[in-house]
Amino acid sequence: MSEPAATAVARKGLLIGVATGLYGISFGALAATAGLDVWQAVALSALLFSGGSQFALVGVLGAGGTGAAAVTTSAMLGLRNGFYGLQVSRLIQKRGLRRILAAHLTIDESTAVTIAQPNTRLARVGFWATGGAVFVFWNAMTAVGAVLGNAMGDPKAWGLDAAAAAAFIALLWPRLTTTRARLTALAAAAIALLTTPHAPPGTPILVAATAAVVAGLLPHGETVEDEGL
């Protein structure tokens, strides 16, 4: 493996970290308007460090949901990181404290860069560069967003009440690469919309997520044509 190849992978990880970190501004602002102070928002980003789960948690809290509903929703979305770990661990092969750190940095972006590399050495460079860059920029922008959120006042006046939903769509859309995935997403959205007027805040998300999980566990036989849609 040449050093230029490793440098290119590291540079890619850094750029992804910068781009992803910008989402942290929205999260920090939403966290502040949901009732968290700056330090709580920063701590949540540093300790949970899973964008989708974080948006879900503050979204439920901001809508008036209970802490149990917020944590459950966040946990369900965070389950995907466990499956990522199964793919990444065989490439990283770390033990002790570095294994714990690797687990914390196993997110969508670091996993995508890692498994895209042609060999183990580049996979490790990609993982640590991407995971580290996202962690630094995400947490830095969370702090900025939380400070701004406290200064902005009512989130509805700035459209921040819709930012969580917009962020979810932005994260989800590129992953809907099959007909089955698209139908599952539409069905889950319909379930959430139908149950929202009749259930406490946070519950519609749990119901929709449960339905999506069940749909994902059902046996299926996608065709080559489906994958190309």
Score class of each variant (00 low, 15 high):
G13K: 05
A102D: 00
D108Q: 02
V224Y: 10
G52I: 11
A19E: 05
V214G: 04
W39N: 10
K156C: 04
F137R: 06
N150G: 15
P197Q: 10
F49R: 02
P200T: 08
L186R: 09
G64F: 01
V88E: 00
L172E: 05
A163N: 11
A129S: 15
A129M: 04
T33G: 13
H104A: 15
E109R: 03
V38F: 11
A167Y: 10
L186E: 10
A163G: 11
I191M: 09
A43V: 08
I191Q: 05
L217Q: 10
L61M: 08
G35C: 11
V214R: 03
P219C: 06
Q93D: 13
L183I: 11
G59A: 04
R182K: 14
L176M: 12
A167R: 09
N119S: 14
V71R: 03
A69Y: 01
S74G: 08
A215G: 05
L61P: 00
V42A: 14
A192Q: 10
L122N: 00
Q93L: 11
A157P: 06
G17P: 03
H104V: 06
V71W: 07
I205M: 14
A143W: 12
W158Q: 12
I92L: 02
R98F: 11
D37V: 11
R124M: 01
I205P: 02
P197A: 10
P197S: 10
R80H: 07
G132L: 07
L148A: 15
A189T: 12
S53Q: 08
N119W: 07
G132I: 04
A192Y: 08
T223Q: 02
